[in-house]
Design a protein around this nucleic acid. Structure first.
Lengths: 347, 347
DNA sequence: CTGTTAGCGCTTTCAA
DNA sequence: TTGAAAGCGCTAACAG
């Protein structure tokens, strides 16, 4: 070990060919004689050669790496998203450079800069809260393909892939209405995101459509977490005119709502209907008792990666805005986890 | 956009200095006059210069990037681990290259190779199931610092950081015994991992210590998932002599066990005691009603990164094996989520 | 404190 | 099909 670094030139010498022949072999070129190739490969193995991508990237001025930056890797939605991206990126012969911003714009700036320095050929970004078009401007101007996921940014001028939050909320509330609920709460989340806004819009539209009045009291914001859900449902239960059902901002909130209901000896699903957007916890660990509005994060990641690769291949393409359909998943009893996909909805 | 790439030479020209002065400025060297530095920096900004790390890495034969490879990013335990690593790696001025193997050894080989090609200065690996010392041999021989986390590999000859699974199981079972339980099941997990083995050892040791017989029937393996937990508890409840408590292989299993109990109208915690290792779902979304054996994945990631950085700095250090303590967390009632840390345990 | 010079390891014309 | 030579953008001596 700690032997001198072996380079193409060493392996060329050992194989009795020239540098460039070795290079061709490395690239899997068909311009090289089968026997030569075999010999070169043998020597490569024997000498324990490791390819130096820095050199190759420098020379070629490109990198075969694509970056993905997520706002919260701790949230399994985004971890799944990254896994989805990785799957397609990898099979296209790229490697993935993943960074987590933890919702911090400053950190986001840094990681994007770092990725540019590393010469990524494209970037998938799930932006930190509060990111605006100006944050992305230098990146976008540099001409490197970018696709935004989950959260769109007005005026950024890049492709985006977001789930159809309005349609999901609409379908959820319609479902509740069809089951006879008249007092339906919207619990959890903060009003300053586009996602919240879209879900709220679907909620209100469905109520209006059913001829129900959307009461402000029934909209209770909270942290989009389990603890937030507990708080929100407690507040809801203090109302004179209690709701009988709730659409929750996400599944973490929905879990908290269930906790809060159980604390009051109410069985979620039976005594009080709960629907949550399936953002945080993927289907396989979700609470079976709940009905959820689901988006498949891996699938979303795959689609985002495909879109990005397309743009990389195309050189410079028109930005596209894609809404990814969501589905309402009705889960029956606890434990049995019988599911029925009711429908795919898309506005 | 699509302007010619601007290089140090351009900025040198524009600033009226030489290449090397620019280079020094880029590296924050103190050898350069304040006025010159300011001017150079201004030009850098004006021209929209982006540093080319491929070139720098090539020249310096090193990279300021550290790799982390995890076996299952979909599992939030590992996502958290990665976040912990990132935090320290970042503040040390490195960037993180994260790859997911999805428990596939072949994929693991590829990503490790890829990272080597990119010239990472160190690697943190949570190995895919079934990884052996031979898989890691080429990497280890190359002399680049490696630290293994979560799963150790016998004979690999590198540092490792694993949590004290035996001590955790021991503490959990002691707790149950102290509360009067005599028939304690071990539910979930597959017997082919070192982690399973260690937890099982702690379980058996605690039973022996309490003078209880470890019945084979009370050990019920299953997939380490929510669904697996449902299956396992159902099987347990079919026994003639039912258990009154269970130690679950991980928290996903514990959730499933709770589902299964509720399906039988038993309240977890009240009618049947459930303890799970807190592997999958981090504390903030964990079921408050459960008592858990917790390892803090972020903390573990941080420690692993610190260890790695130490080794990188030291050049070549002795491998160290560290066991990370776990703690038994007693959670009280549902919703209120009152917790009390009973103690840190370490064998 | 700043400029000159010589490569890092690879790819890529262009000839042979 | 293979070889020779040039150079990607940067840094590291070494002079000045």
């Amino acid at each position: 070990m700690a032997k001198e670094r072996v380079t193409v030139i060493d392996i060329a010498r050992a194989a009795g060919v020239s540098k460039s022949t070795v290079s061709l072999v490395l690239q899997g070129s068909s311009l090289v004689n089968e026997a030569t190739r075999a010999k070169v490969n043998a020597v490569i193995r024997d000498l324990g050669y490791v390819y130096n991508r820095s050199a190759a990237n420098l020379r070629q001025a490109k990198s075969k790496i694509i970056g993905i930056v997520v706002n919260d890797l701790t949230n399994s939605f985004f971890a799944e998203l990254a896994v989805g991206v990785d799957a397609v990126v990898q099979s296209a012969g790229f490697v993935q450079f993943l960074a987590n911003t933890g919702e911090k714009r400053e950190r986001q700036r840094e990681v994007i800069a770092s990725m540019r320095e590393h010469g990524v050929s494209g970037l998938i970004i799930s932006p930190a809260r509060g990111t605006d078009a100006a944050d992305l401007a230098p990146l976008v101007e540099s001409g490197i393909p970018v696709v935004l996921v989950v959260r769109d940014i007005a005026g950024a001028g890049v492709s985006s892939l977001i789930s159809d939050n309005r349609a999901g909320a609409l379908a959820a509330v319609r479902h509740l209405v069809a089951r006879g609920h008249r007092r339906i709460a919207f619990l959890g989340g903060f009003a300053d995101t586009a996602v919240f806004e879209a879900r709220m819009r679907g909620y209100r539209d469905a109520l209006r459509e059913a001829g129900l009045h959307a009461e402000d009291k029934l909209v209770i914001g909270s942290a989009p977490s389990r603890a937030g859900g507990v708080t929100a449902i407690e507040q809801a239960m203090m109302l004179e005119d209690r709701p009988t059902a709730a659409l929750c901002f996400n599944d973490a909130v929905a879990f908290g709502v269930c906790d809060g209901l159980r604390a009051r000896r109410l069985e979620p699903g039976a005594d009080f209907a709960v629907i949550g957007f399936d953002d945080v916890i993927e289907a396989k660990t979700a609470v079976p008792a709940l009905t959820t509005v689901s988006v498949d994060p891996q699938g979303m990641g795959e689609r985002a990666a495909e879109l990005l690769l397309k743009q990389i291949k195309a050189g410079r393409a028109e930005p596209e805005a894609i809404v990814s359909p969501v589905r309402l998943v009705i889960r029956q009893s606890c434990g049995a986890a019988v599911e029925r996909k009711v429908k795919e909805v898309s506005s």
